[in-house]
Measured scan of single mutants.
Amino acid sequence: KKVIATKVLGTVKWFNVRNGYGFINRNDTKEDVFVHQTAIKKNNPRKYLRSVGDGETVEFDVVEGEKGAEAANVTGPGGVPVQGSKYAADR
């Protein structure tokens, strides 16, 4: 997939743990970017499923997906693991 931007910061608008996807609002352009659970590179080690939490600040790359921009290599700011959704089960 073609990389559009790297190391972008954004805020998770919403993320559905059961369906495994959601949207991140970019801090720079204010665009909403699709995020799939497979794009989460550093999950919270205490969580079973990969997820990001609503309102969480994340860092990610933006790539060209089939339906427009989507997030890739999602981590917390500075490459730390994401916090994850409060609806995702703990280990």
Rank of each mutant, 00 (worst) to 15 (best):
K1I: 10
K1L: 04
K1T: 05
K2Y: 09
K2V: 06
V3L: 10
V3I: 15
V3E: 08
V3H: 08
I4E: 06
I4N: 08
I4K: 08
I4F: 14
I4S: 08
A5M: 14
A5N: 15
A5H: 14
T6I: 15
T6D: 13
T6A: 07
K7C: 09
K7E: 11
K7R: 10
K7Y: 03
K7V: 04
K7D: 11
K7N: 13
V8Q: 06
V8L: 09
V8C: 12
V8S: 03
L9F: 15
L9C: 15
L9I: 11
L9H: 12
G10S: 00
G10L: 00
G10Y: 00
T11V: 10
T11N: 12
T11Y: 08
T11Q: 11
T11S: 09
V12K: 00
V12L: 03
V12G: 02
V12R: 00
K13V: 07
K13Q: 07
K13G: 04
K13Y: 03
W14Y: 04
W14A: 02
W14Q: 03
W14T: 03
W14P: 01
F15N: 01
F15D: 02
F15C: 01
F15G: 01
F15A: 01
F15Q: 01
N16Y: 02
N16K: 03
N16G: 03
V17A: 09
V17R: 08
V17H: 09
V17M: 10
V17I: 10
V17C: 13
R18Y: 07
R18G: 07
R18N: 13
R18V: 13
N19I: 12
N19G: 10
N19S: 15
N19M: 15
N19K: 15
G20I: 02
G20K: 14
G20Q: 11
Y21W: 12
Y21I: 04
Y21P: 00
Y21N: 02
Y21T: 03
G22A: 00
G22P: 00
F23H: 02
F23R: 02
F23K: 03
F23I: 04
F23T: 02
I24H: 00
I24M: 02
I24P: 00
I24K: 01
N25V: 14
N25W: 09
N25L: 14
N25I: 13
N25R: 13
R26P: 02
R26G: 01
R26K: 03
R26S: 03
N27S: 14
N27E: 14
N27Q: 13
N27C: 12
D28C: 03
D28W: 00
D28N: 02
T29Q: 03
T29I: 09
T29D: 07
T29K: 05
T29H: 03
K30A: 14
K30M: 11
K30R: 14
K30D: 13
E31G: 09
D32W: 02
D32F: 02
D32Q: 05
V33P: 01
V33C: 07
V33K: 01
V33L: 13
V33H: 01
V33Y: 03
V33S: 00
F34N: 01
F34S: 02
F34A: 02
F34G: 01
V35I: 15
V35F: 10
V35N: 01
V35G: 00
V35K: 01
H36G: 04
H36V: 03
H36F: 05
H36I: 02
H36Y: 08
H36N: 04
Q37S: 12
Q37F: 12
Q37M: 13
Q37I: 09
T38K: 08
T38N: 09
T38L: 09
T38Q: 09
T38R: 12
A39K: 11
A39R: 08
A39C: 06
A39H: 06
I40N: 01
I40L: 07
I40W: 04
I40F: 06
K41C: 15
K41M: 15
K41T: 14
K41G: 09
K41L: 14
K41Q: 15
K42W: 09
K42T: 13
N43D: 08
N43P: 11
N43S: 11
N43I: 10
N44I: 05
N44F: 05
N44Y: 06
P45M: 12
P45H: 15
P45W: 08
P45E: 11
R46V: 13
R46I: 14
K47G: 08
K47C: 07
K47R: 09
Y48N: 13
Y48Q: 09
L49A: 06
L49N: 06
L49I: 06
L49P: 06
L49F: 06
R50D: 06
S51H: 07
S51G: 08
S51L: 06
V52Y: 03
G53P: 04
G53V: 08
G53S: 12
G53K: 12
G53Y: 07
D54E: 15
D54M: 14
D54R: 11
D54Q: 15
D54A: 12
G55R: 10
G55C: 11
G55Y: 07
G55P: 02
G55E: 09
E56G: 04
E56Q: 06
E56L: 04
T57G: 06
T57K: 11
T57A: 12
T57N: 14
V58P: 00
V58H: 00
V58W: 02
E59F: 07
E59W: 07
E59S: 08
E59C: 11
E59P: 00
F60I: 04
F60L: 07
F60W: 00
D61A: 06
D61T: 08
D61G: 02
V62C: 07
V63S: 03
V63K: 08
V63P: 00
V63A: 05
V63F: 10
V63E: 05
E64P: 07
E64H: 13
E64W: 13
E64R: 15
E64Y: 12
E64A: 13
G65E: 05
E66D: 15
K67E: 08
K67I: 08
K67D: 06
K67Y: 08
K67R: 12
G68Q: 04
G68F: 04
G68Y: 05
G68M: 04
G68V: 03
A69W: 11
A69F: 15
E70V: 11
E70D: 03
E70I: 12
E70S: 14
A71V: 07
A71M: 00
A71D: 00
A71Y: 00
N73H: 11
N73E: 12
N73S: 11
N73K: 08
V74P: 00
V74G: 00
V74H: 00
T75V: 11
T75S: 10
T75I: 05
T75D: 02
T75E: 07
T75G: 07
G76N: 06
P77K: 13
P77D: 03
P77N: 04
P77T: 07
P77F: 07
G78H: 14
G78I: 05
G78E: 12
G78A: 15
G78D: 10
G78L: 12
G78Q: 13
G79N: 12
G79F: 04
G79A: 08
G79Q: 08
G79E: 08
G79V: 04
G79S: 10
G79C: 08
V80L: 12
V80N: 15
V80R: 10
V80S: 15
P81R: 08
V82Y: 04
V82D: 04
V82H: 04
V82C: 14
Q83A: 10
Q83P: 04
Q83Y: 09
Q83V: 09
G84H: 05
G84Q: 04
S85M: 05
S85D: 05
K86R: 13
K86W: 09
K86T: 15
Y87Q: 11
Y87E: 07
A88S: 11
A88Y: 06
A88W: 05
A89W: 11
A89L: 12
A89F: 15
A89Y: 15
A89I: 13
D90P: 10
D90H: 12
D90N: 14
D90Y: 13
R91N: 09
R91M: 15
R91D: 09
R91G: 09
